[in-house]
Simulated scan of single mutants.
Amino acid sequence: MSKTHPAFTTGGLAAVRTRADRPLLLTNATVHTFDPLIGVMCDADVLIGGSVIVGIGPGIVTAAEDDDAVVIDASDTVILPARLDVGTALGTVERGSGAGTLAPGSDASFVVVASDHAPDLPAVLHAAYARHDLLLAVLKDGQPTHWAGEHLGGASTASLQPESVAVDPRRVGVWVDTEDFLHQELTAGGRYDETRGGRPHAFQGRYWVDGDRIDYLDDLGFWAFGRFIGDTLHHAGYTMHQQASR
């Protein structure tokens, strides 16, 4: 009788967290490696040593006990890189040299989704990159950052949704560039209003603040961004300072 292994459950997470320096093996998954030599593998195992993909393909699980590996049952799941890099396919990036593919030697950074949500490649990509609620697991450099619906730390954009408001009260006010050309008002309600060269309401829209980054969605439909560095706001080539409240 084959041994039963934990899956993408709290029990599986506990096993992964206690692995220390032991290898981690995900078994029996469909793996989109995005590597031009390997391609897609079905009923495949993914072996992780430290932060690197060590092996990939069927049959690796037979040596799991010899290697004292922690094994996770990945049946009925699809695994693909956490980041895609077309440079590998074009030959401008060395195979297995980092993120972007799941070839042996690549970073062990990948996402796992249920096969039910991934009948074909477009569906896989949509589930993995646009539907964080469908993710069974995310690993970065061999360490889980998301598992069984739980975010385990690190940066999260779960609160940054189009319908939400993400405002930092410290940033609310009028920001003026060094040449007094651009005036940008950030309101407490998550709206911005730009005056350019004395022309009022040149651009208006919504904004979201995420740490030191600010994202703009103009009412015309385009996106832009800026970065807070110390007491300055850098946006579209302008350096702005916050105007003192009157």
Rank of each mutant, 00 (worst) to 15 (best):
D218L: 05
G205M: 03
H241K: 14
S156R: 07
G98Q: 08
M240Q: 13
V113Q: 02
S156H: 07
A155D: 03
D212K: 05
A14S: 14
A69E: 03
A148W: 03
K3D: 13
L84P: 00
A103Y: 01
R171A: 14
I53L: 13
T30Y: 00
T62A: 15
R83H: 07
G55L: 02
L182A: 09
F228V: 09
G59W: 06
H117D: 13
T178M: 07
A69Y: 06
V71A: 09
G57I: 08
E185G: 04
A15H: 07
A123K: 06
Y238R: 12
L233E: 07
R83G: 06
P169H: 07
I72F: 11
M240S: 13
L80K: 05
S2K: 10
D116Q: 09
G39F: 05
D168S: 14
D168Q: 11
D212M: 05
R19S: 12
A118Y: 02
R213A: 11
G57V: 08
G211D: 12
E185M: 09
V165R: 15
Q143N: 10
H126N: 09
D177S: 10
P104V: 08
T157H: 13
G105I: 00
G12W: 01
H151Y: 12
D215R: 07
V113C: 07
R17N: 15
V54G: 01
V31H: 01
D66S: 13
S156K: 05
L186T: 03
D180Q: 15
V16N: 05
L37M: 05
